[in-house]
Design a protein around this nucleic acid. Structure first.
Lengths: 141, 141
DNA sequence: TATGGGGCTTCCCATGGTGGGAAGGTCAAG
DNA sequence: CTTGACCTTCCCACCATGGGAAGCCCCATA
């Protein structure tokens, strides 16, 4: 199987397949005499694994760790579970962060008349620190 | 005010202040004869504005847009509000994405015994496609 | 057998933001 | 005048991903 076919079969772009190989995430593919990379069904599976892990928000580094766990047939499922739950915690932190932003913005938007007048509490908040009423054009400096 | 002071006063690193200038997000600072950048209180305000916008998840491009709105004393608050709410929608999309990941992982983790045995539905899911039991070392190819 | 088109190879560049650091000029205090 | 802190520019790195160029390879069809 050529890299293109493997890419189509796995949903990972050929570009990324090469990249994953270059950073050592996946093992170097075998080559034809002409230098073409050759893939087998197991390689495609690995790529799919990577793709799925990425789509669940794992970083490259974490994905590598998951690959190690996957390949280590003697791992304890507890290790995998802990790893997954650590990531969930991570995701929750990021979610909370975004939710904080959204809440703030929603609040500000609610305070904004949203009409033709220029006065806007949203901008006022962004400028928070004593944004002078309209004095000088010195911010043009 | 030197760049270092402006950085401390605004909470934006000197490095980023120069970067913001270089990409045209903020206007080039005045210079001393020796070439040192000079900032005034209004510039610090602008930097704070940028910092706040960034902390609310606006991209550089969006932040530039907000700066334009801010500087345009004739803008309609409706425009600002719409802009903010568009961003909220964006944040909500990202939140939903992360929540989907977290939900999937929580579900998988729940299905995982989490003991000393190697069997793990989490890895099984990542490998989903007929991950062969233990047949060939061909993925080593 | 020649040719064309599509696939492969490597290599470089860009993104978005941020930080690190080197090499050299400047300024203020002692 | 020296020293140390600060400034300047410039390059490099990260994390993933995509774009594209230059050149080689393979296959099918004429």
């Amino acid at each position: 199987m050529n890299i293109g076919e493997a890419a189509r079969a796995s949903g990972v772009s050929a570009k990324m397949v090469r990249y994953y190989e270059s950073i050592g995430l996946i093992r170097p593919a075998a080559r034809t005499e002409a230098g073409y990379r050759v893939y087998g069904p197991d390689d495609v599976n690995t790529l799919r694994f990577v793709k799925r892990a990425r789509s669940l928000g794992f970083s490259m580094e974490e994905t590598a760790e998951l690959l190690n766990l996957w390949r280590d047939k003697t791992r304890a499922s507890a290790d995998v579970k802990a790893f997954a739950l650590k990531h969930v915690t991570d995701l929750e932190r990021r979610i909370a962060e975004l939710q904080g932003m959204a809440a703030t913005l929603r609040h500000l938007a609610q305070c904004c008349a949203g009409d033709q007048r220029p006065d806007c509490p949203i901008l006022d908040d962004l400028a928070q620190a004593n944004q002078t009423p309209s004095p000088s054009p010195s911010s043009r400096a």
